[in-house]
Amino acid sequence: MTDQIYSLAELVIVACAEAWRNDGEVLATGIGPLPRLGAGLAKMTFNPVLQTTDGECWYTSEPVPPGKRATEPELEGLANYDRVFSALWSGKRHALVGPVQMDRFGQANISVIGDHDRPKVAMLGARGFPGNSVSHPNSFFFANHNTRAFVDGEVDFVCMAGYNPDRYVNGKPPEGLDLRIIVTNLCVMDFGGPDRRIRVVSLHPGVTFEEVQDNTGFPLARIANAIPQTPAPTAQQLELIARLDPNDMRATVFKGDPRGDRRAA
Protein backbone atom coordinates (compact mmCIF):
# COMPACT_ATOMS: atom_id res chain seq x y z
CA MET A 1 0.00 0.00 0.00
CA THR A 2 1.08 3.55 -0.62
CA ASP A 3 -0.06 6.82 0.86
CA GLN A 4 -0.11 8.28 -2.60
CA ILE A 5 -3.23 10.07 -3.79
CA TYR A 6 -4.81 8.30 -6.75
CA SER A 7 -7.92 8.95 -8.77
CA LEU A 8 -10.98 6.72 -9.11
CA ALA A 9 -10.00 6.30 -12.78
CA GLU A 10 -6.58 4.98 -11.78
CA LEU A 11 -8.13 2.59 -9.25
CA VAL A 12 -10.43 1.31 -12.02
CA ILE A 13 -7.52 0.92 -14.49
CA VAL A 14 -5.65 -1.23 -11.99
CA ALA A 15 -8.77 -3.31 -11.30
CA CYS A 16 -9.37 -3.75 -15.06
CA ALA A 17 -5.76 -4.86 -15.60
CA GLU A 18 -6.39 -7.80 -13.26
CA ALA A 19 -8.81 -9.23 -15.82
CA TRP A 20 -5.87 -10.27 -18.03
CA ARG A 21 -3.47 -11.48 -15.30
CA ASN A 22 -3.69 -15.21 -16.06
CA ASP A 23 -4.66 -15.15 -19.72
CA GLY A 24 -1.29 -15.82 -21.33
CA GLU A 25 -0.79 -14.98 -24.99
CA VAL A 26 -4.18 -13.67 -26.16
CA LEU A 27 -5.57 -10.53 -27.76
CA ALA A 28 -6.54 -8.05 -25.06
CA THR A 29 -9.33 -5.74 -26.21
CA GLY A 30 -10.27 -2.92 -23.84
CA ILE A 31 -13.10 -0.73 -25.12
CA GLY A 32 -13.00 2.83 -23.76
CA PRO A 33 -10.06 4.64 -22.18
CA LEU A 34 -9.98 2.88 -18.78
CA PRO A 35 -10.31 -0.74 -20.01
CA ARG A 36 -7.79 0.04 -22.77
CA LEU A 37 -5.33 1.48 -20.24
CA GLY A 38 -5.97 -1.55 -18.04
CA ALA A 39 -4.97 -3.85 -20.90
CA GLY A 40 -1.84 -1.75 -21.43
CA LEU A 41 -0.98 -1.88 -17.75
CA ALA A 42 -1.42 -5.67 -17.67
CA LYS A 43 0.91 -5.98 -20.67
CA MET A 44 3.51 -3.64 -19.15
CA THR A 45 3.53 -5.53 -15.85
CA PHE A 46 2.31 -9.05 -15.08
CA ASN A 47 1.30 -10.32 -18.54
CA PRO A 48 3.86 -9.02 -21.08
CA VAL A 49 2.85 -11.57 -23.75
CA LEU A 50 -0.61 -10.00 -24.27
CA GLN A 51 -1.35 -8.67 -27.75
CA THR A 52 -2.77 -5.16 -28.10
CA THR A 53 -3.87 -3.27 -31.22
CA ASP A 54 -3.87 0.31 -32.43
CA GLY A 55 -7.67 0.22 -32.55
CA GLU A 56 -7.52 0.14 -36.33
CA CYS A 57 -5.82 -2.82 -37.99
CA TRP A 58 -2.41 -3.54 -36.46
CA TYR A 59 -1.02 -5.44 -33.52
CA THR A 60 1.50 -3.18 -31.82
CA SER A 61 4.62 -4.10 -29.84
CA GLU A 62 3.61 -1.74 -27.04
CA PRO A 63 0.20 -0.44 -25.96
CA VAL A 64 -0.89 2.62 -27.93
CA PRO A 65 -1.98 5.64 -25.84
CA PRO A 66 -5.61 6.73 -26.17
CA GLY A 67 -5.86 10.03 -28.07
CA LYS A 68 -3.09 11.87 -29.88
CA ARG A 69 0.25 10.11 -30.33
CA ALA A 70 3.69 11.65 -30.18
CA THR A 71 5.23 8.76 -32.12
CA GLU A 72 3.90 6.01 -34.31
CA PRO A 73 3.89 2.59 -32.61
CA GLU A 74 6.02 -0.33 -33.76
CA LEU A 75 3.73 -2.71 -35.65
CA GLU A 76 4.10 -6.41 -34.95
CA GLY A 77 1.29 -7.95 -37.00
CA LEU A 78 -1.84 -7.45 -39.03
CA ALA A 79 -5.16 -7.26 -37.16
CA ASN A 80 -7.59 -6.69 -40.00
CA TYR A 81 -11.24 -7.37 -39.17
CA ASP A 82 -11.43 -10.74 -40.87
CA ARG A 83 -8.53 -11.89 -38.73
CA VAL A 84 -10.09 -10.41 -35.60
CA PHE A 85 -13.11 -12.68 -36.16
CA SER A 86 -10.86 -15.68 -36.72
CA ALA A 87 -8.97 -14.88 -33.52
CA LEU A 88 -12.10 -14.33 -31.44
CA TRP A 89 -13.79 -17.52 -32.67
CA SER A 90 -10.64 -19.42 -31.63
CA GLY A 91 -11.13 -18.16 -28.07
CA LYS A 92 -7.72 -16.45 -27.97
CA ARG A 93 -9.08 -13.11 -26.88
CA HIS A 94 -10.33 -11.50 -23.68
CA ALA A 95 -12.40 -8.36 -24.16
CA LEU A 96 -13.33 -5.84 -21.49
CA VAL A 97 -16.32 -3.90 -22.77
CA GLY A 98 -18.77 -1.29 -21.56
CA PRO A 99 -22.39 -2.30 -22.07
CA VAL A 100 -25.31 0.00 -21.33
CA GLN A 101 -27.34 -2.56 -19.37
CA MET A 102 -26.59 -5.83 -17.59
CA ASP A 103 -28.93 -8.19 -15.76
CA ARG A 104 -28.54 -10.82 -13.02
CA PHE A 105 -27.48 -13.43 -15.62
CA GLY A 106 -24.69 -11.27 -17.02
CA GLN A 107 -26.72 -10.73 -20.19
CA ALA A 108 -25.70 -7.37 -21.66
CA ASN A 109 -27.24 -4.83 -24.02
CA ILE A 110 -25.84 -2.11 -26.30
CA SER A 111 -28.60 -2.12 -28.91
CA VAL A 112 -31.77 -0.39 -27.76
CA ILE A 113 -33.58 0.92 -24.71
CA GLY A 114 -37.24 -0.03 -24.93
CA ASP A 115 -38.97 -2.02 -27.65
CA HIS A 116 -36.78 -3.36 -30.44
CA ASP A 117 -39.25 -2.47 -33.23
CA ARG A 118 -39.55 1.11 -32.15
CA PRO A 119 -36.99 1.81 -29.46
CA LYS A 120 -37.12 4.69 -27.05
CA VAL A 121 -33.37 5.00 -27.57
CA ALA A 122 -31.51 3.38 -30.46
CA MET A 123 -27.84 2.89 -29.72
CA LEU A 124 -25.14 1.08 -31.69
CA GLY A 125 -26.66 -2.26 -32.58
CA ALA A 126 -25.46 -5.62 -31.29
CA ARG A 127 -22.02 -5.25 -32.87
CA GLY A 128 -19.92 -8.37 -32.21
CA PHE A 129 -21.32 -8.90 -28.71
CA PRO A 130 -23.30 -12.09 -29.44
CA GLY A 131 -20.37 -13.94 -30.99
CA ASN A 132 -17.86 -12.58 -28.49
CA SER A 133 -19.96 -13.73 -25.57
CA VAL A 134 -19.99 -17.41 -26.56
CA SER A 135 -16.45 -17.54 -27.96
CA HIS A 136 -13.97 -16.04 -25.49
CA PRO A 137 -13.70 -14.57 -21.99
CA ASN A 138 -15.40 -11.23 -21.42
CA SER A 139 -15.16 -8.67 -18.64
CA PHE A 140 -17.02 -5.43 -18.15
CA PHE A 141 -16.73 -1.80 -17.08
CA PHE A 142 -19.58 0.42 -15.95
CA ALA A 143 -18.81 4.08 -15.19
CA ASN A 144 -22.13 4.55 -13.38
CA HIS A 145 -23.18 1.70 -11.13
CA ASN A 146 -26.93 2.22 -10.76
CA THR A 147 -30.24 0.45 -11.30
CA ARG A 148 -30.52 1.73 -14.88
CA ALA A 149 -27.28 -0.11 -15.68
CA PHE A 150 -27.81 -3.21 -13.50
CA VAL A 151 -31.45 -3.86 -14.21
CA ASP A 152 -34.20 -5.84 -12.58
CA GLY A 153 -35.49 -8.63 -14.87
CA GLU A 154 -33.70 -9.03 -18.19
CA VAL A 155 -31.96 -6.37 -20.26
CA ASP A 156 -34.11 -4.78 -22.99
CA PHE A 157 -32.32 -6.61 -25.84
CA VAL A 158 -29.91 -9.41 -25.05
CA CYS A 159 -26.85 -8.74 -27.23
CA MET A 160 -24.43 -10.68 -25.07
CA ALA A 161 -25.38 -14.12 -23.80
CA GLY A 162 -25.25 -14.83 -20.07
CA TYR A 163 -25.91 -17.56 -17.53
CA ASN A 164 -29.66 -17.72 -18.16
CA PRO A 165 -30.66 -21.40 -18.43
CA ASP A 166 -33.97 -20.52 -20.11
CA ARG A 167 -32.11 -19.33 -23.19
CA TYR A 168 -30.36 -22.63 -23.95
CA VAL A 169 -31.34 -26.04 -25.25
CA ASN A 170 -30.96 -28.32 -22.19
CA GLY A 171 -30.34 -25.19 -20.09
CA LYS A 172 -26.63 -25.32 -20.81
CA PRO A 173 -24.72 -22.43 -22.40
CA PRO A 174 -21.97 -23.06 -24.97
CA GLU A 175 -18.61 -23.91 -23.45
CA GLY A 176 -17.11 -20.67 -24.70
CA LEU A 177 -19.34 -18.55 -22.45
CA ASP A 178 -16.94 -17.28 -19.81
CA LEU A 179 -17.89 -14.06 -18.04
CA ARG A 180 -15.09 -12.89 -15.77
CA ILE A 181 -15.12 -9.60 -13.86
CA ILE A 182 -17.22 -6.44 -13.69
CA VAL A 183 -15.45 -3.24 -12.67
CA THR A 184 -17.62 -0.25 -11.74
CA ASN A 185 -17.23 3.11 -10.06
CA LEU A 186 -18.20 1.39 -6.79
CA CYS A 187 -16.72 -2.09 -6.73
CA VAL A 188 -15.40 -5.16 -8.50
CA MET A 189 -17.73 -8.12 -9.04
CA ASP A 190 -17.49 -11.55 -10.64
CA PHE A 191 -19.79 -14.48 -11.43
CA GLY A 192 -18.64 -16.65 -8.56
CA GLY A 193 -21.86 -16.65 -6.51
CA PRO A 194 -24.19 -19.64 -6.17
CA ASP A 195 -25.40 -20.70 -9.67
CA ARG A 196 -23.06 -18.15 -11.24
CA ARG A 197 -24.76 -15.29 -9.48
CA ILE A 198 -22.98 -11.97 -9.57
CA ARG A 199 -21.08 -11.34 -6.35
CA VAL A 200 -19.11 -8.44 -4.98
CA VAL A 201 -15.44 -9.37 -4.62
CA SER A 202 -14.02 -6.01 -3.55
CA LEU A 203 -15.34 -2.60 -2.60
CA HIS A 204 -13.62 0.62 -3.61
CA PRO A 205 -12.32 2.48 -0.55
CA GLY A 206 -15.17 4.21 1.26
CA VAL A 207 -17.98 2.23 -0.47
CA THR A 208 -20.25 -0.14 1.47
CA PHE A 209 -21.95 -3.33 0.27
CA GLU A 210 -25.32 -1.74 1.06
CA GLU A 211 -24.53 1.16 -1.23
CA VAL A 212 -23.67 -1.26 -4.05
CA GLN A 213 -26.80 -3.35 -3.43
CA ASP A 214 -29.03 -0.24 -3.36
CA ASN A 215 -27.69 0.70 -6.78
CA THR A 216 -28.24 -2.76 -8.29
CA GLY A 217 -31.58 -4.00 -9.63
CA PHE A 218 -31.07 -7.61 -8.44
CA PRO A 219 -29.73 -9.30 -5.32
CA LEU A 220 -25.95 -9.60 -5.15
CA ALA A 221 -23.87 -12.32 -3.55
CA ARG A 222 -20.76 -11.41 -1.58
CA ILE A 223 -17.36 -13.09 -1.52
CA ALA A 224 -17.22 -12.98 2.28
CA ASN A 225 -18.94 -11.26 5.14
CA ALA A 226 -16.07 -8.83 5.30
CA ILE A 227 -15.58 -7.84 1.66
CA PRO A 228 -11.99 -6.81 0.88
CA GLN A 229 -11.08 -3.37 -0.36
CA THR A 230 -10.11 -2.94 -4.02
CA PRO A 231 -6.29 -2.71 -4.01
CA ALA A 232 -4.95 0.83 -4.37
CA PRO A 233 -2.58 1.44 -7.29
CA THR A 234 1.08 1.12 -6.37
CA ALA A 235 3.56 3.91 -7.08
CA GLN A 236 4.96 1.86 -9.97
CA GLN A 237 1.49 1.34 -11.43
CA LEU A 238 0.69 5.06 -11.20
CA GLU A 239 3.91 5.89 -12.99
CA LEU A 240 3.17 3.38 -15.76
CA ILE A 241 -0.40 4.63 -16.13
CA ALA A 242 0.89 8.19 -16.58
CA ARG A 243 3.24 6.92 -19.30
CA LEU A 244 0.51 4.92 -21.02
CA ASP A 245 -1.85 7.91 -20.96
CA PRO A 246 0.13 11.07 -21.76
CA ASN A 247 -3.06 12.83 -22.90
CA ASP A 248 -4.67 12.25 -19.49
CA MET A 249 -7.74 10.73 -21.12
CA ARG A 250 -8.37 8.93 -17.82
CA ALA A 251 -9.29 12.24 -16.21
CA THR A 252 -12.26 12.66 -18.56
CA VAL A 253 -14.15 9.47 -17.66
CA PHE A 254 -15.63 10.38 -14.28
CA LYS A 255 -17.17 13.80 -13.71
CA GLY A 256 -14.72 15.95 -11.75
CA ASP A 257 -12.05 13.20 -11.84
CA PRO A 258 -12.67 12.21 -8.18
CA ARG A 259 -10.23 10.53 -5.86
CA GLY A 260 -10.19 6.77 -5.65
CA ASP A 261 -10.38 6.76 -1.88
CA ARG A 262 -13.71 8.27 -0.87
CA ARG A 263 -13.15 7.98 2.88
CA ALA A 264 -12.96 11.28 4.72
CA ALA A 265 -9.36 12.48 4.67
Binding site: H116, F129, G131, V134, C159, A161, R167, L177
Partner: peptide, 9 residues
Protein backbone atom coordinates in the same frame (compact mmCIF):
# COMPACT_ATOMS: atom_id res chain seq x y z
CA UNK B 1 -22.42 -20.73 -35.97
CA UNK B 2 -22.48 -20.30 -32.20
CA UNK B 3 -22.91 -16.54 -32.54
CA UNK B 4 -26.41 -15.53 -31.53
CA UNK B 5 -27.00 -18.42 -29.11
CA UNK B 6 -28.43 -17.19 -25.84
CA UNK B 7 -29.30 -13.74 -27.22
CA UNK B 8 -32.33 -11.86 -28.52
CA UNK B 9 -30.81 -11.82 -32.01
Amino acid sequence: TRAGIGTDI
